[in-house]
Design a protein around this nucleic acid. Sequence first.
DNA 1: GTTAGCACTCATTGAGAAAGAGTGCTAAAC
DNA 2: GTTTAGCACTCTTTCTCAATGAGTGCTAAC
Lengths: 341, 341
Amino acid sequence: MNEELTERGRRILEAIVEDFIESGEPVGSRSITRRHKLNLSPATVRNVMADLEEAGFIYSPHTSAGRIPTEKGYRLYVNTLARFQEPGVELERGFERLEGTGLEERLQGVGRILSGVSSYAGIVSAPSFDATVFSSIRFVRISERKVLAVLVSSSGMVQNRIICTDEDIPADKLERITNFVNGKLNNLTIREVKKLILREMSEEKAHYDELYFQALTLSRRAFENMAEGEVFIEGASNILEQPEFANLERMKRMFRAFEQKSLLVRLLEQCRTAEGMRVFIGREVESQMLEGCSLVATAYTSAGGLTGVLGVLGPSRMPYSVVIPLVVRAGVLMGRFLEAG
Amino acid sequence: MNEELTERGRRILEAIVEDFIESGEPVGSRSITRRHKLNLSPATVRNVMADLEEAGFIYSPHTSAGRIPTEKGYRLYVNTLARFQEPGVELERGFERLEGTGLEERLQGVGRILSGVSSYAGIVSAPSFDATVFSSIRFVRISERKVLAVLVSSSGMVQNRIICTDEDIPADKLERITNFVNGKLNNLTIREVKKLILREMSEEKAHYDELYFQALTLSRRAFENMAEGEVFIEGASNILEQPEFANLERMKRMFRAFEQKSLLVRLLEQCRTAEGMRVFIGREVESQMLEGCSLVATAYTSAGGLTGVLGVLGPSRMPYSVVIPLVVRAGVLMGRFLEAG
DNA sequence: GTTAGCACTCATTGAGAAAGAGTGCTAAAC
DNA sequence: GTTTAGCACTCTTTCTCAATGAGTGCTAAC
């Protein structure tokens, strides 16, 4: 289908997409000839537009209106036509301002930056520790039946969680468990550690050596469901400013979509393992609640192996040539940023 | 002004408020006589309504419409007229279903319950540790310049934070600091601990005794801005279902209000120290963004001294006789619930 | 003090007219 | 054969105007 397009067709599609992104109004043949130096008359443009409509790149909301890009039209534009613009310094500035804050604040802060710079919604998912290299664990007795587990990754990230135990474990025993576990699990990624624990637990030795068993139990609980899947959405109200959402039903749906983040989480998960940046246009977002929205997202990875996803969610009618490089840049900065942590 | 009202005036105001809460439409004299057995003609009711309008309890949006309660009208209704209804079992059931989860999940879960039962927005603020009795602190060396501080309250709640230090503090020194600090700060509330640290830091001794100084510095950082002021808002989209918010501008404003929770935090803070339940009606919410909303909130307190606030935010036109007892009940359950934790 | 009657007000609804934008087609021009 | 000018046509948007209907306030009678 791409092949069907002539050079002239492509240029006119580009013009339509760009004008529509700018104005939000259906684009007519007349205004194209006025705003772009194509040296063509409106009538000629109309003929080409009819072809483009036939091929499914644009459509008109009604007979006497201009044309609007379809999702297929946006897709072609994003894939082949858009000329990307270098992001400005605001992004760097924003990251600098976040130096020296905690992880949660950082993630939220980056979301806010993305939102501010793009004027859409900024989305950041918390990094997964799965691919990080595990450095050490420590069990600390807090009270009668509570043990604090502190996990440190080699990249210096710290996670901790409280474990309620069935019996009281004295401090010196915890010390021994700590030493034992560290000796065993050193220099693996968290994912490998989890697997190893499960494997060892099924082995015979676990059943008669009490210390060993307790060590494994504690470790398993320390590593299980580590606060993951958390997603920060910032500046969602920006999206509502867009005229295409000036509609009660849509606005409510959007609101609800942001409230139950699970939809977005699933989508972001797809990006975590993918190479480079991804753009989800319209229905590719796979949620009727977010109809008419697009998501530009990329995974970020720190040298320490922390990976997460960040991106910008906005109307499908968004300036991709600005947003895409912005997100890509943010992904790179985020990776570095986490190491500095 | 309350005194100005006759018994009949009060009954008619009550009828207006209740009918309006139910229907959302301005209430006319005719429909009052039909729906309430007042043994009065519409004309008489009209006369009384004129008096009520004069006194500022009701108003009409335009000449040929029925009457709507003013905030003053709601206030009188809430203070003196409403007959409270016992909350159902859903509330208890909801709390039971949350047994055995972590603090954050609990707070969020309670918000969801409140939202579900009231069909408005449920709001829960994280408990403050200020009034809890401090039990012990512990400093653990994590890496070269990172120390983990673990705070345990006598009620068994645990908080921890990571402190970046200027210099590397060896493990044995941290041990001594831990012992030293625990000896000094035992059996005070967190608020008192904070004060004490500040006082000691200004004393002379802090300047020449290095261990002492380091202990104080670490403690101060461990206790400063402990994750407080966190507020969970659940089911905010429920509010948008109300017909009075079927308006683009208002909806956007609401959305933004929920995004920057700070407004609500301030309001909830007022409840934390207050006795019993509070109702903020309309402008008492002190935010133009939440115009036309009311907040029913109450502080909750566990035996361990943890205090927070929870409540329901909805349109001013909400069934107070249902929501108020609901929130009161939830406050009691929440207090117990935290101890079980 | 209470009520019936009635003129009056004002939001809402729907129909119809006018305006405006843009198209598709046809026939002429290059 | 491609491009363009001209023109009728379609469809949305906006405005006005009248009809409708709910509810009031006032007055006079009970």
